[in-house]
């Protein structure tokens, strides 16, 4: 059982759908949404609850669109 739980919150209007975040997520949590933002980009979105809050996605996001949260489980 995972000892940490994480979540990402994507600023969907800042996201340009470059997809750099998806492959650096070891848990396979990120995919591109089928929806478009107001600029017509498919934005990054979380597709499962496996996020560990490792911040890899946020580190490579050129647009600073990803905020990461993490809680330690007892």
């Amino acid at each position: 059982m995972a000892t940490v739980k994480g979540r990402i919150v994507v600023d969907t209007e800042r996201c340009k759908g470059c997809q750099l975040c998806a492959p650096v997520c070891k848990e396979g949590t990120i995919a591109m949404s089928k929806n478009l933002n107001s600029k017509g980009y498919q934005f990054a979105t979380s597709i499962n609850d496996d996020c560990t809050g490792c911040i890899n996605c946020a580190l490579v996001c050129p647009d600073g669109a990803i905020t990461v949260y993490r809680v330690k489980l007892n």
Partner: peptide, 30 residues
């Protein structure tokens, strides 16, 4: 989970709210 005290990464306050003018995926933003 998404409470302020649990936030481990957020864009620095020294970046303005203006959307970056760079192409998607460009390293300039980083």
């Amino acid at each position: 989970i998404c409470k302020p005290e649990n936030m481990v990464y957020h864009r620095t306050a020294l970046l303005t709210e203006a959307p970056l003018s760079y192409c998607p995926g460009c390293g300039h933003g980083t």
